[in-house]
């Protein structure tokens, strides 16, 4: 049971990162290899922002400095959004007509660059992320039950932030003018261009959107796990990509669902097989899905593609 709560909460970050993959894939069919590392840089932006505001450690801080968290999350969202847009402009845009492998290799290069920015920025050792959220366990303190299962304030915080973001994304795609343009470009970029849609701008916007979600996930990850390291992006990226594929890549609802399913699966693997098998479980799942059902769980529902 404890594994299920941890799984759902971890699933929330994974889902947010997975949305970044799936948005980009849906629109230009590129596996944005650098997305996990973008998320990693996001955690560093949060950490640096909090440090600058005087909350680098929780020592001497009473209560939760909500305003600082708001600034940190905004900083990370803006940073990741802009960086993702720049990466698209520099490394992928010119390759849009090239054979498929060219942008993928370029994305691997961008990923290396991001990892090294992280390495130079915060050094090779894991960094502690301040534990600023209230320590409050709803199960024991509200209901007076003393079990192994804990549903803490942290879990609530992550879900309370992630779910509105997902709904917000769904709203952007479904109901705004830009969302409509995104769907049009995803379906047929040639035709969208002829209908007067500025395809380059729509693609840029998609990258910004993916980056913003990664930035938000970064703060949640930092506050929930209280650590970050420059190699974080690779594993997080692969998990998120697996989640996106699990849900049916290109499908926004699928990515969110896939994130939660994968989070659960990963935490159950940790509980029943040991932490060192977590990534083996995740990758094996990825291989199995790709082999047997490459369209993913919701892959057939093409109507919702973004």
């Amino acid at each position: 049971m404890a594994a299920i709560v941890i799984g759902i909460t971890n699933g929330a970050f994974i889902a947010l990162i997975a949305l970044g993959y799936t948005l980009v894939y849906g629109i230009i069919e590129l596996i944005n290899f650098a997305h996990g590392d973008l998320f990693m840089l996001g955690t560093f932006v949060c950490l640096t922002t909090l440090t600058l505001l005087g909350f680098g450690t929780e020592v001497g801080v009473s209560g939760t400095p909500w305003w600082a968290l708001v600034i940190a999350i905004l900083a990370a969202m803006i940073f990741c959004g802009v960086l993702n847009m720049l990466a698209e402009r520099v490394a992928y845009r010119r390759l849009r007509r090239a054979p498929r492998l060219a942008p993928l290799i370029s994305a691997i290069g961008v990923s290396f660059i991001f990892v090294n920015i992280g390495l130079f920025w915060q050094g090779p050792t894991p960094r502690r992320f301040p534990d600023l959220l209230p320590q409050y366990d709803f199960v024991s303190q509200l209901f007076g039950l003393h079990t192994l299962v804990r549903f803490t304030f942290k879990d609530l915080f992550v879900l309370a932030l992630a779910i509105p973001l997902m709904l917000g994304l769904a709203w952007v795609i479904r109901s705004t003018r830009m969302g409509k343009a995104m769907r049009a470009v995803a379906q047929d970029s040639e035709m969208a261009l002829q209908m007067g849609i500025d395809v380059d701008r729509v693609i840029s916007f998609t990258f910004v959107l993916g980056g913003v979600l990664a930035g938000a996930a970064a703060l949640m990850y930092g506050l929930y796990n209280n650590n970050t390291v420059f190699t974080l992006g690779f594993a997080a990226g692969l998990k998120a990509f697996t989640a996106a594929v699990l849900g049916g890549i290109g499908n926004v609802t699928g990515a969110a669902l896939g994130g939660f399913v994968l989070g659960l699966l990963a935490s159950l693997t940790v509980t029943y097989a040991g932490g060192q098998w977590e990534n083996v479980g995740v990758f094996s799942l990825l291989v199995i899905i790709l082999v047997f059902k490459p369209t993913g769980l919701l892959g057939q529902a093409l109507g919702d593609r973004a």
Binding site: N279, F283, V291
Partner: peptide, 20 residues
């Protein structure tokens, strides 16, 4: 699988072997 999916599966395999 299509080219980029194959890339990801091989990447996963490349991760699994050292982990195992």
């Amino acid at each position: 699988l299509r080219g980029d999916y194959l890339a990801i599966v091989t990447l996963g395999f490349g991760e699994i072997v050292p982990l195992v």
